[in-house]
């Protein structure tokens, strides 16, 4: 707490501050890395988080299981996220909320914006832990109009769990990855009854028994089915689907595009770090180091396919050890 006040004061005074390690993102990865670095004896760490609450994606995953490895019990996402945040606070690691990193400069020079103003952080090492998100409708090139009622699971969960609101009542769910089934769970909790879940392959993208969840939720799973066109002016009215060459129209009031994860690597891309051509994850060596040696990346920003929170937490710990070794050998 004292340290974070100090960082704030310093940043206000000169708009520039330095630290050993700056961590971008307070999801499981960033938190785990911070805790591990602290444990190794590195004290001047800063976690930068653009949201007004720390914790990352689990904040809006209102379901278990989270925290089994970290806390030896089964928690829901929001409880897990709060617990993570509490732990770094107990360790006196500054977690700067509403701090958006806007650019990654050479050698770890970060541009950061907060409601108090802009500042530069000169970090010896930077950990990118900005996570992953789902591909929106636009980048999927789906035909049709662009009415209200179209979103990803992330937005749905944030609306339901953080704001107590719902974007639709009877959506069509596109995709059958694990996250698609979390979406069904979220729908159930919020009183949303999806009209169907569609999957373009001939099998769901998850193993039994999860795939049986459709039956539990009372949502028909249509395989070999693609979305052909979205119809509606103000709000979604219906969707044309093609099921094994047969076209039909399904009445619904929304379309939920689930999964097809893409790394949130836009900062890295704009900052000229090399990205993997197929996954768009920052390209890292076996130590998790990016093309600019001041930068490291871990967690779901680098995992393709994506992993669960516990695995990201682990990957945060591992990267912290790498960063520690690197700093140590550099004499820092």
């Amino acid at each position: 707490m004292i340290l974070s006040a100090l960082v704030k004061m310093m940043s206000k005074a000169c708009n520039r501050t330095s630290c050993s390690v700056a961590i971008i993102g307070s999801g499981p990865t960033g938190i785990a890395a911070a805790l591990e670095l602290k444990k190794s004896g590195i004290t001047d760490i800063i976690i930068l988080e653009r949201e007004k609450e720390g914790g990352g994606v689990p904040r809006h995953c209102g379901h278990p299981p989270f925290g089994l490895h970290e806390y030896h019990r089964i928690l829901t996402g929001p409880v897990y996220a709060r617990r993570n945040v509490q732990t770094v606070q107990d360790e006196n690691i500054p977690l700067l909320l509403r701090h958006s990193v806007t650019s990654l400069g050479p050698n770890g020079l970060l541009e950061v914006v907060s409601p108090e103003g802009g500042m530069q952080i000169d970090a010896k090492r930077v950990l990118l832990a900005t996570g992953t998100r789902e591909t929106p409708r636009s980048a999927r090139f789906v035909s049709g109009t662009r009415p209200l009622g179209i979103c990803n699971t992330g937005a749905l969960q944030a609306m339901v769990y953080l704001k107590n609101m719902v974007p639709f009542r009877r959506p069509l769910v596109v995709g059958s990855e694990i996250v698609s089934f979390s979406a069904l769970w979220t729908c159930k909790k919020a009183g949303i009854q999806p009209v169907a879940m569609i999957e373009k392959e001939d099998h769901p993208q998850v193993r039994r028994p999860i795939s049986l969840a459709c039956r539990y939720f009372g949502v028909p799973l249509l395989l070999n089915t693609t979305i052909e066109k979205i119809i509606g002016t103000e709000r979604v009215r219906s969707v044309q689907i093609i099921q094994q060459d047969n076209q039909r129209e399904v009445t619904c009031d929304g379309v939920l595009f689930t999964g097809r994860f893409v790394p949130e690597s836009s900062l890295a891309r704009l900052g000229d770090l090399t990205l993997d051509a197929t996954t768009a994850c920052p390209l890292t060596d076996k130590h998790g180091r990016c093309s600019d040696p001041a930068y490291f990346a871990a967690g779901n920003l680098t995992h393709h396919p994506v992993r669960v929170a516990g695995q990201c937490f682990k990957s945060g710990r591992i990267i912290a050890k790498e960063i520690y070794k690197d700093l140590d050998s550099a004499g820092g």
Binding site: H60, R133, E134, P136, R137, S138, A139, C151, N152, G154, A155, A158, M159, L162, K163, M165, P167, E264, S266
Partner: peptide
């Protein structure tokens, strides 16, 4: 780029 993935809940509010 995220087309509301991160912010539409807050915007809805």
């Amino acid at each position: 780029r995220c087309q509301g993935f991160y912010c539409s809940a807050r915007l809805a509010e």
